[in-house]
């Protein structure tokens, strides 16, 4: 019990917990739209590009002699992630490159660019580790404000535009026939996904960012029938694993990102197992009571 009060009293942990709640709520909202449009790996692609942004911010910070030298790393990541997300959407829409290939290009270009730029900035790849795997323990007051503001933007737009974002993710062609501004809505999703990646970057790291967006949705899909309940369940799972994961890393010296993602996957496995057992027991008859098309002699 004293451990718990100690933990809550620590300003460092307070900031980390707020960040975890924001990420746990915002990431699954965007993850739901990405899974719906079958772009589960988009977050990963954006995460890789964000690494180039981190290194570029670092390079600029060094060149301008700013203190701390990495003050531009997060803004750099935001810019790179947004540009990368818009780029992939344009590539996808033009149809010349399949979404799959566009993602692959983003993956390789992002990592290679990041390592290249950090080298130019006079750093080593070790400097990138905090961004690749998360360093929630070092979340500063400024970081927290950035995370909170971006997280609220993602939540407000992602939930407020839900009918339109649902329509465009469900059936893009039909959304066009409704007269919806499909290209604009696609860009909204791309930009929000990019912001989510940079928000989650400090908590779980760029390499695992996508997991916080996607795995809670995978869990929710197992139990939910509707889009609305999928999104709500995913948000609940997201907050749960982020906060619990953080508490565990307060007690044991483990990487928060890895613990959070492993927890999420454990929840998925557990729910899948229970669901499998329940389904097995009571298979319902899904058939409607309709007359046959042909005459069948008994």
């Amino acid at each position: 019990m004293t451990t718990l009060t100690d933990m809550l009293a620590s300003p460092l942990m307070q900031r980390a917990l707020i960040a975890a709640v924001v990420v746990g709520l915002a990431a699954p909202v965007m993850g739901t739209y990405l899974v719906q449009r079958r772009l589960s790996l988009l977050g990963d692609g954006i995460g890789h590009v964000a690494l180039t942004g981190v290194a570029a911010g670092w390079l600029v910070g060094n060149a301008l002699d700013l203190t701390p030298y990495d003050v531009l790393a997060v803004p750099g990541a935001v810019v790179a992630a947004v540009l990368g997300a818009i780029g992939i959407d344009v590539l996808r829409e033009r149809g010349r490159t399949s979404g799959d290939i566009a993602l692959a290009l983003l993956f390789y270009g992002g990592i290679a660019g990041g390592v290249l730029l950090i080298g130019l900035a006079g750093g080593t790849t070790a400097n990138l580790m905090g961004y690749l795997f998360g360093s929630i323990a070092t979340v500063s007051q400024t970081d927290l404000v950035t995370i909170a503001v971006l997280g609220v933007v993602v939540l407000v737009v992602g939930l407020g535009l839900r009918p339109a974002l649902f329509a465009v993710s469900q059936d893009e062609e039909y959304a066009r026939s409704l007269g919806l501004p499909v290209r604009g809505l696609n860009l909204v999703i791309a930009v929000l996904a990019a912001l989510t990646v940079t928000v989650a970057m400090r908590v779980v790291g760029l390499l695992l960012v996508s997991a916080v967006m996607i795995v809670p949705v995978a869990v929710a899909q197992l139990v939910a029938l509707s889009f609305r309940s999928t999104m709500r369940t995913a948000m609940g799972v997201g907050v749960g694993v982020c906060v619990l994961g953080l508490v565990i890393t307060y007690l044991y010296p483990l990487s928060p990102g890895a613990v959070i993602v492993c927890l999420a996957i454990a929840v998925y496995a557990g729910v899948a197992l229970v669901r499998g057992l329940l389904r097995h027991r009571a298979p319902g008859d899904p058939h409607l009571d309709v007359p046959d098309d042909v005459i069948v002699t008994p």
Binding site: V35, S40, A164, F166, Q170, L185, V217, L225, F227, T230
Partner: peptide
């Protein structure tokens, strides 16, 4: 195209037909 990557109910899919304009 009635189903996508995330479950949606019949009512949710039909309700998307109500959208017009910007979708707000």
């Amino acid at each position: 195209t009635a189903s996508a990557g995330v479950p949606a109910t019949v009512a949710e899919v039909v309700a998307s037909g109500l959208l017009t304009g910007v979708g707000f």
